[in-house]
Amino acid sequence: MGPGQPEYVGMTRVQLLDAGRAPITAQQYYAEGDPGPIVAALASVPELLGPTLGFVAAALGRGSTSVRLKEFAILRTSALQGCQFCIHAHTSVSLDIGLSPEEIRALRGEVPLEDGFPSESERALIGWIDALAGATGPIPDDVWVEARRHWPEHVLVELTVTVGATMFLNRFATGFELPTADHVMARLDAAGLA
């Protein structure tokens, strides 16, 4: 691997375009170095980069709800969808924003939810996320009613968009076998969360 080269070249089902092969219409995404495997895979269809990343940034980034709730939606959805790339990436993000290892394990389904989340309101929200991302078909009324009892409608709308965008990323990363960067795995190893 040469200097400045991504850590993951040649390990996926699709080409991950490095800066030298990045389309001229995608160069802005490489201006600050390796943009990561999602961008490097999407760059094969550069006209998708702007709309896709704009949507993902709006759905997963800072919004009207707290980053803590956003990470609930992202990490829980990724665990329900079995996306290793997204679980690894958002375990790291969850540590960054201050989630405890116990909360992370609970969101990843490795310990009972009650062990990580004593709060009834947060469990109600995770119940809504589970109904969206962990099942198909109609969602029972009681799940919605319980979530609404604790959270305003706009929060549930925003987090439902977050769940949907995360499911898209989950399938994108899983389908193309996008690899986790070495430094992320090293961090999770060190935290006992690999």
Binding site: L17, G20, R21, A22, P23, I24, T25, A43, S44, V45, P46, E47
Partner: peptide, 22 residues
């Protein structure tokens, strides 16, 4: 792929506008 503008070729306005913007 370094000089790729878009994978979309038709309608032609899609790559034409991408070229102009680039």
């Amino acid at each position: 792929t370094d000089l790729l503008l878009t994978r979309t070729i038709l309608p032609l306005s899609v790559p034409a506008n991408a070229l102009l913007a680039t």
